[in-house]
Nucleic acid binder design. Structure first.
Lengths: 342, 342
DNA sequence: TTGTATGCGTTATCAC
DNA sequence: GTGATAACGCATACAA
């Protein structure tokens, strides 16, 4: 299919290429109504489609947004199997497309850094999910483009952050358990890194305990990787060797599902013997057996919000945007995995 | 961060920009070893990163691949919540990135068509998942680029198809049920469209029945949308009003999970009262309760294969590639939702 | 208001 | 082998 250029449009309309460019870019103040009319018709009839590569070259603006998501450790694959990221992407893409932007979705090579892609593609901005090593962020600061971070507690004037109050979320979850009469509550979680989201949730766990006058028992935190498999291990352990535990807060829904499986494998039931609450409210949470009680963060909205933030940062190029993080709301969704004691 | 251009590299190396271009593009036959050395060092020291927009303009090749995935009907969001697509994307992205390509992931507006994006971005190729209306494919044929279809039975010389033998898959599933002594087997499925994947699976269902000398009963096919929710409805219906049915084949894992839920809601159990088998083996299949027996199509491999096909088609520009579809293998994964009768 | 001419960074076509 | 230089398609400063 042959490419229609701006020149052909200009010839058909009987005006200059400059005029065409003005009209098509909405610089209506620079052209007469008559020209606008002619150009628009010509463009229409020829079915003119601008070439973004050329535009990018002339403008230094590509209408391209980089979206980075973590990869699995072993194989070099995106962590997209985690519905949390999928749903985030849904939200992001929908907003971007409606604004005429496109999304380049990719993981990031361990050695290389993301700088290459950024420079090669003249990205207008980027949304980074997950947590990476320091050097990655240093790279990011060098390129002069708006960047939105998701799931990060790195507060730096170079970045906008769209987050949730993870500490509160942890608190809400554990408090719900406490309100239902539980006093021996385990925490099943991924590695607790300084300033990571799980650390905050962990802090919320401790605060809820403390406020209720309950004793924090380090033996009741099961910490490893954020996977269904580890949840399963932890669930078995809890059911088999910790008869005192009546409830567990898992810091992700997938882990919660693993816990339920593990508990069951040891001949106990959820929620009869052990109550479980998760975090995120991924779409599968409601499909689990029994349907999982969890802390809902409206993931898709969060993705949309991140995109919105980025777009407005791009538009306000130059003007500093407020550097306070955007905090999305949380809600406790009570389904069937928490039992009221007594 | 300032952009280093090819000109600066050429100056530093003391050669022409043409020489730099030759070296960097591996046209080593056109330059002396000495120049190669100098250019490489200069590029290294300056940390030169080529601009793909410029390259795209000069070459008419963008190193950009369009990946299209269906959207939800209601809101304009990607169907990425469906792990089937997520996993496909994982496979695709990993292969593309390793070959120096990037992926533009997007849905497609109902009215617009995909032509715009294609032309705007000078896409080198595209991978299309799902099924669309005729006009969409007509558009696709107009642009002269390699295209790979996933989940489609459109055999046209313009497209490569990376598929599975859906008929066989359906057959395998139902046959497994029959081997376990079931004779009244329901089918729970999305809308059966002519030449769609579910139609093939439906055909496999019927063939298995027939070969086993069983009677095909239209009342035992529950056909609506490919959702957890519909699976749930169907499951309830089956458990409540069809005591003769002892097993169901759901044409997607998500539907199967819904069926299980529905069955349970009516006071029956899986697999004690009703056996269930799914299709796809999404990552959540093993996490369901009980773990779901299903027909596994290695989704990630399929994504990788699709990317490989596309890349080799791009490289062989001009030469026709074999137009027979690539068929990926299937495997029955027996977990805990099918009970042996008697 | 309109058109001309130039630059954006690369590659490719030539002469040398 | 090597190096000017003209495309590629678009936007824009400047001249008209």
């Amino acid at each position: 299919m042959k490419r229609i250029t701006i020149r052909e449009v200009s010839e058909k309309a009987g005006v200059s290429t400059a005029a065409v460019s003005y009209v098509l870019n909405g610089r209506h103040s620079k052209v007469s109504a008559d020209t606008i009319e002619k150009v628009q018709r010509a463009a229409q009839e020829l079915n003119y489609i601008p070439d973004f590569s050329a535009r990018s070259l002339a403008n230094n603006s590509s209408k391209l947004i980089g979206v980075v998501i973590p990869q699995t450790e072993d194989r070099k694959q995106l962590l997209l199997q985690n519905p949390f990221y999928s749903e985030l992407i849904c939200g992001i893409e929908s907003q971007l497309r409606q604004s005429g932007y496109h999304m380049i979705l990719s993981g990031v090579e361990k050695g290389e850094g993301y700088l290459d892609t950024t420079m090669q593609r003249n990205l207008d901005g980027a949304i980074i999910m997950g947590v990476y090593q320091e050097s990655f962020y240093d790279d990011l600061k060098k390129v002069n483009m708006p960047i939105v971070l998701i799931d990060s507690y790195i507060y730096d004037r170079h970045f906008h952050v769209v987050g949730i109050d993870d500490e509160l979320g942890g608190y809400m979850a554990v408090n719900h358990l406490i309100e239902n009469g539980h006093t021996n509550i385990a925490l099943v979680t991924g590695t607790i890194r300084k300033d990571g989201v799980v650390e905050k949730r962990f802090l919320g766990y401790k605060r809820a305990l403390k406020e209720a006058g309950l004793f924090y028992n380090p033996d009741h935190v099961f910490e490893h990787s954020v996977t269904y498999e580890y949840g399963y291990e932890a669930g078995k352990l809890i059911a088999a060797e910790h008869p005192e535990i009546t409830a567990v807060f898992a810091t992700s829904d997938q882990m919660a599902m693993g816990v339920m499986r593990g508990v069951r494998e040891e001949g106990k039931d959820v929620p009869e013997h052990i109550s479980v609450i998760g975090f995120d409210d991924i779409s599968f949470a409601r499909m689990s057996t029994p349907p999982l009680t969890t802390v809902d963060q409206d993931i898709i909205s969060r993705g949309m919000k991140a995109a919105d933030c980025l777009l407005s940062a791009i538009q306000n190029k130059g003007k500093e945007l407020p550097s306070e993080p955007t905090i999305m709301p949380l809600a406790l969704v009570a389904r069937d995995t928490v039992r009221k004691l007594q």
